[in-house]
Design a protein around this nucleic acid. Structure first.
Lengths: 221, 221
DNA sequence: TACCAACCTGAACTCTTCCTGAAAATAACG
DNA sequence: CGTTATTTTCAGGAAGAGTTCAGGTTGGTA
């Protein structure tokens, strides 16, 4: 699940990015408004975190650019402590949530999960497809026989992508885009390797290959 | 990724085409509305760039022709600087994005990528002919008995062509042009071979041979 | 009716894509 | 710093899709 973090404080970014990645996001970071605008329009993000104080412009302008150019992923804005005005203006400009600095990374992550869920039109923090249930908080999978199995980071992200739209065919390129940020680019055989591991878990019949097109997770039990 | 560039200013075309090709598109260029209409309907583009001011007609008419003839690739229109009316009319006529001249090639490319991705993710176009229904996203075919059958890439492209105009006779040469680009040129017996496979799927009576002229997909149930 | 061209048909062949098991690289952890 | 878990790559093989071929049918035409 790709996320764009717009923040110019390198100290803050360092810790935050790694925590977000641990939480299952693949994160792109930029510290300038200009780059943020371009990335937001060009890449396929599931969420954004936007600091309002940027060296080359106001974060709200970035948000307005996105909103007027069909970049509709949900956005959480970071405001200075208790700055009411920023908060109101942000929500007016189309933000989905806000968080005042300083904050705990856990809270940011929880709120991000919430706005992503809302934007995808579901209220629960678990994803169901067929007779499987994926717990987004604990990164584990409940199998039809009732047992639970914890997943590694990459296993989880791939499975979440597939289970988010059961029956839909995802090309290897699409999956690569969701799993890795702009800095990482492993060979796309990695998808095949992980598909194999997931099949060992959920059964080979649950994930089908459409040769030359991609993979799909089956809906029907 | 094939792209159709409809622009009559040779100066602009020259630079633009090479940049688009550098960005991974294989570009066809035309400067007339008439040719644009034909190309858009016959070739299999993933996206189009359409200048509204053409010597022999209005770009919007081109767009309407495409949309009413099953040419559903996403289209970005180029408008004169800040011309509101053009922009609104364009979006009404079915355009997916617009860009005001003058513009940076980078921005055009970024927007093209965006509309291509959007069209691949969410376009829910399905093509009906007779009692058959072709799902353009999943590349599969719903048969009259309700069952679904997934198609290979070539089967799908050929069937989409035939079903896009039921009752219309397509010559083998036309079909070859649709399926293959200028670099590939298999023997045209390949059409016969694929027609046979499709007939096994939809029934021999659904696709008729017009000896010396071509093939047609029957409309009536 | 005899011939030719267009078309049909089944199977063989080639090439790409995908699968698979394991090993190498990298990151996380104590 | 060594140990373990995880990610990534590699190479061989299997399966599937794309293409060609050879021989059989059909319909038009002289």
């Amino acid at each position: 699940m790709r996320l764009l973090l717009v923040e110019d404080d390198p100290l803050l970014v360092e810790g935050l990015a790694s925590q977000l990645e641990k939480a299952g996001f693949s994160v792109d970071v930029t510290g300038t408004a200009k780059a943020a605008i371009i990335l937001g329009e060009q890449e396929d993000y599931r969420a954004g975190v936007l600091d309002l104080g940027l060296p080359d412009g106001n974060g709200l302008d970035v948000l307005r650019h996105w909103r007027s150019n069909n970049a509709h992923f949900p956005v959480l804005i970071l405001t200075a402590r208790g700055d009411w005005q920023d908060k109101v203006n942000g929500l007016k400009a189309g933000a989905d949530d806000y968080l005042a600095k300083p904050f705990q990374a856990e809270e940011l992550i929880a709120r991000l999960h919430a706005i992503v869920r809302r934007s995808e039109g579901r209220g629960q923090s678990s994803l169901r497809a067929g007779r499987f249930e994926l717990d987004e908080n604990r990164q584990n999978l409940k199998l039809p026989d009732g047992s639970e199995h914890s997943l590694t980071g990459t296993e989880f992200r791939l499975l979440r992508c597939l289970m988010s739209r059961p029956g839909h065919v995802f090309s290897k390129e699409q999956l690569m885009e969701q799993l890795y940020n702009l800095n990482e680019s492993p060979s796309d055989n990695i998808i095949e390797a992980y598909i194999r591991r997931l099949r060992k878990l959920v059964g080979a019949e649950t994930i089908t290959t459409r040769r030359g097109q991609g993979y799909l997770f089956h809906d029907a039990p």
